[in-house]
């Protein structure tokens, strides 16, 4: 009993720093953001005294649902695109020989050596009506001379996938590397085609990696504003752009905070859903530990 109490105290002491860290840097700011939503704005960009529901009313802006939906939709598509591209990539990296694998890994992280801002700008140059890519596509007859590659949702999506791809490859690769590929042979031995073995054995085997990749791509995507700002147009604005605009142009902090709160809910919702899914799986594990 006594020993149990002592270990519990020790556990608390060990976890305390991370609780403090999370509390100070995550929980308090999040609560503040939610709170500021209910504060009045001052004309000089500050936060006024007292409480008000004014901001809540202005958040009913008829443009917002469309922008929020676009944000979620583009983030979903970008996440889906990244995972779709990253999974086969990770599969081949995990199966490749050690030397070749090291080179591939280097290629994946290579873009991090350049500022992402520069890389996003590079896309602007490529997609520009006079840009190389555009010219090449026209020359190949794949795009009309008047086609607009830049300043639309597709451009935003393309650059989002490009920027986030390494964040999907790395966790999936980490899971794939630990995967026992003999299981694939076992599946084929039992009559499964290559695709069936991939779907029924490989994908479930790397599901933790897939989940991590989903979170690593989806959450930053929701908050993205540099990409739509640079390669997007007025029809491809995301919530991030609006928050930036309210903060820097309108200098209306409570309004920006309100938008952030909405975004935070959008981030937390999938997290909570996943957490509850996990909990539903865990009773079995609990049972098992009792059984041992």
């Amino acid at each position: 009993m006594k020993a149990g109490a002592r270990t519990r105290l020790a556990e608390w002491l060990v976890t305390l720093p991370s609780f403090v860290w999370l509390g100070v840097l995550f929980l308090v700011p999040t609560v503040l953001v939610f709170a500021i939503t209910f504060k009045p704005a001052t004309p000089f960009g500050g936060i006024g005294e007292g409480w008000t529901l004014d901001t809540l009313r202005t958040l009913g802006n008829p443009n917002y649902p469309a922008i929020l939906w676009r944000t979620i939709r583009l983030s979903m598509l970008a996440t889906g695109g990244c995972i779709l591209l990253a999974t086969p990539m990770a599969y081949y990296m995990a199966r490749a020989g050690a030397a070749w694998r090291r080179w591939l890994l280097l290629l994946v992280v290579l873009p991090f050596w350049t500022s992402s801002l520069v890389r996003i700008f590079a896309w602007k140059v490529l997609l520009h009506p006079e840009g190389m890519l555009k010219q090449a596509l026209v020359w190949l007859g794949l795009a009309g001379p008047d086609a607009m590659l830049l300043y639309n949702e597709n451009a935003v999506l393309l650059v989002m996938v490009y920027t986030e791809l390494p964040f999907a490859i790395l966790p999936i690769y980490a899971a794939a590397e630990k995967f026992d590929f003999r299981l694939i042979e076992a599946a084929k031995d039992l009559g499964a085609s290559s695709f069936r073995a991939f779907r029924s054995v490989f994908l479930p085997g790397i599901r933790v990696g897939l989940l991590t990749a989903f979170l690593m791509v989806f959450i930053p995507s929701l908050g993205s504003y540099v990409i739509p700002d640079i390669v997007g147009g007025p029809t491809s604005e995301m919530v991030g752009n609006k928050i930036a605009q309210r903060t820097f142009v309108d200098r209306n902090l409570p309004h920006a905070a309100g938008l952030s709160a909405i975004l935070a809910v959008a981030v937390l919702a999938p997290l909570l859903a996943i957490a509850s899914l996990r909990r539903r799986e865990s009773p079995r594990d609990a049972l098992r530990e009792e059984g041992v």
Binding site: D180, R182, L183, E185, A186, A187, V201, P204, G205, R207
Partner: peptide
């Protein structure tokens, strides 16, 4: 029947 059994863990 593989030496490692290769049962599907999931």
């Amino acid at each position: 029947i593989f030496q490692s059994y290769a049962l599907f863990p999931h």
